[in-house]
Amino acid sequence: MISIENIKKCSQILFTVVLLLTIAFISFLVYRGIKSNDLEYTQTHELINVTKRPKIVLLLWTWPLRYSFPLNRCPPEFDASDCLYTIDRDMYSSAHAVIIHHRNISTSKTLLPQIPRPPNQFWIWSNMESPSNSLNLVFLDNLINLTMSYRVDSDIPTPYGWLVSKNQDSKKYIIPKKSKLVAWMVSNWKKNSRRVKYYEDLKNYLNIDVFGKYHKPLSRTDYMKNISTYKFYLSFENSIHEDYITEKFWNNAFVSGAVPIVLGPPRKNYERFAPPESFIHVDDFNTTKELASYILDLDKNYQKYQQYFVWKSKYEVSHRGSFMLQYCKVCRALKEAPGYRTIPSIAEWFK
């Protein structure tokens, strides 16, 4: 039989346990509240600091090609800590510069800012397309102050790729195992273009596998793995213009480990970016048959083929990266820009 005394002891123990649990729970809630307030204070404090710091306001008039990306996340090497990037058009009047992506405004001049322009505000023209694929450049007459494009002579150069010296500790480059001859990835198929006509003649002498919209399907996930099995890649540009050397050369060929056969600007232009023995230029041959004979000879002579990869022991490819990294260049460029001046004609300079 349970005595009254034992019941009292149990009640006291139960009360103590409940009391301790209640105190612990209240302490937890108080702690959570303090942490929440601390976080709130920290965020507010950081916001106050940001607004107090002197800022160069850079307004993206549109997302480039409607691709959005995180703003104000530039790596330290871009020296962009005192620049504020924004997509908010309400900040137009206080913006030190407006970045205008050509493709987004090329169909109508009304797509450009229509608000009165603040004194000394820079307009920066951004474009990665060639002149042949850039409509209505006249929209920009006497409006642009700085250019940002793949062209080396741009105020803010953003090439599709370039070579950088390898780290001394880098592993020696090993040529991927090859089982096929020539590949070409093409979606913009125009029968009367120079590159399609050249291909139509070249295929009479070589076996060329063509991938793309109107040809063999090839998923992006398998793309590099597939192309790396080919000895050569047709890096044929869709139009011929100075410095217009695109991902067809840098990524599709160089990075995948295929030797690029290039059709684009003159050889000398390519040699500004890459060693002369790293690629084959169609202009070096009088006929497509002559080029095909050279390719077939390289296919049989591995030692000679290997010479096209010697550069990889010293250099590696660096890409233009994302739009975010391109736009990160604007901050320093604006700080180092010459005195305010306006370009009379983008069309004249670009073409």
Rank of each mutant, 00 (worst) to 15 (best):
D169N: 08
S170Q: 03
K171Q: 09
K171F: 07
K171N: 11
K172M: 12
K172S: 14
Y173D: 09
P176V: 00
K177N: 10
K178P: 03
K178H: 00
S179I: 04
S179T: 11
S179F: 00
A183E: 04
A183I: 05
W184Y: 04
W184K: 00
M185Q: 07
M185T: 13
V186H: 02
V186E: 04
S187V: 07
S187R: 08
N188I: 01
W189E: 04
W189Y: 13
K190S: 05
N192G: 04
N192F: 02
S193R: 08
S193Y: 07
Y198N: 06
Y199F: 15
Y199V: 11
E200D: 14
E200V: 05
D201Q: 08
D201H: 06
D201E: 14
L202C: 05
L202S: 05
K203F: 02
N204M: 11
N204C: 06
Y205F: 15
Y205T: 04
Y205S: 06
L206F: 07
L206S: 05
N207L: 08
D209P: 00
D209G: 01
V210S: 06
V210T: 14
G212V: 05
G212P: 05
K213R: 15
Y214G: 04
Y214D: 12
K216I: 03
L218N: 06
L218A: 07
R220S: 10
Y223S: 01
M224V: 08
M224D: 12
K225H: 11
K225E: 14
N226P: 00
N226C: 10
I227H: 01
T229K: 14
T229V: 02
T229F: 02
F232C: 14
Y233F: 15
Y233S: 13
S235W: 04
F236I: 08
N238G: 11
S239P: 12
I240R: 13
I240V: 15
H241Q: 08
E242W: 06
E242K: 15
E242T: 14
D243V: 12
Y244R: 01
I245K: 01
I245C: 05
E247F: 02
E247Q: 03
E247C: 02
K248S: 01
K248D: 00
F249P: 00
W250T: 03
N251F: 12
N252G: 01
N252W: 00
N252I: 00
V255A: 03
V255Y: 05
S256P: 00
S256I: 06
A258W: 04
A258C: 14
V259D: 10
P260W: 09
P260H: 09
P260A: 10
I261A: 07
I261M: 07
G264T: 09
G264V: 07
P265Q: 11
R267T: 15
K268A: 12
K268Y: 03
Y270S: 08
E271F: 07
E271V: 07
F273L: 12
F273I: 03
A274V: 15
P276A: 09
P276K: 15
E277H: 13
S278F: 07
F279C: 08
F279M: 12
I280E: 01
